[in-house]
Write a protein that binds this DNA or RNA. Structure first.
Lengths: 124, 124
DNA sequence: CAAACATTTGAACATCTGTTCAACTGTTTG
DNA sequence: CAAACAGTTGAACAGATGTTCAAATGTTTG
């Protein structure tokens, strides 16, 4: 997804904005910083893919190696590995190596609470 | 993003899986259904864009019209409208019409709690 | 009714994303 | 050490995504 910001031009003047000036000013001050916004979007982007949700759900039951996850999800080892890298970068999973095998597990409880929160919304 | 599931072929045999059979069985039973997983991913996909996060943040302070949001975010009215449609489809925002002006506001408290949960993670 | 305005919509476009495939890095074991 | 195995990595590809632009829809007002 594009993450550029386009300022200035192509944003037409808006007469009515004078009327809503207070509302706009409130919204300006109350928001998140540009960096927080970007980090938030990056985080949720990670949750926005079924393969990654399935990996995280699987890891909720306990640690698993790449091979196990691949078999469980019926996704190639390579695809799983690529997704685990993204989850690792987002600090949502951690791993330990035991011989040839690499075991992945959830990094902390945030994963569970975030997914639980989403589950609550979709079962409105 | 692709949401296809590839079953069967191209998932190589995995000798060690026999050893982890219990772990794999646990992960299988404990997960979400296929439909829940898809809905979860769809929901988080919506949060995974800075423009939409900024729109939601702005609406946390109260209702705003499309024109206000456009000015506030320095994003074209058209782009805002497109994003509002996505937020509407995800039932994250609602709207009311007053003459020519359409006012948008958050649909329920889930938006706040979901974003707050994410904010907690990124400020680990 | 025509002009002005707020918003929506659809097509086009460049960019991003996830999977596959092949090649590679480590690690164990015969 | 060579073979086998677990996992990683990078390039390539098809498909998805967000913005822009132009045209359309409603709504108010002169």
């Amino acid at each position: 997804m594009k993450e550029e910001k386009i300022f200035g031009e192509s944003v037409p003047e808006c007469e009515i904005s004078e009327v809503h000036k207070n509302a706009v000013e409130n919204a300006k001050s109350g928001g998140y910083t540009e960096e927080e916004t970007m980090k938030l979007a990056e985080l949720y982007k990670v949750f926005g893919d079924t393969t990654r949700i399935r990996i995280l759900s699987a890891l909720m039951q306990g640690e698993l190696c790449v091979c196990d996850i691949s078999e469980l999800l019926c996704v190639s080892v390579s695809a799983v590995s690529h997704q685990l890298r993204i989850l690792k970068q987002a600090e949502l999973v951690k791993y330990r190596r035991d011989g040839k095998v690499v075991y992945y597990s959830l990094a902390d409880d945030h994963v569970k609470t975030i997914i639980a929160q989403g589950a609550e919304h979709i079962n409105e």
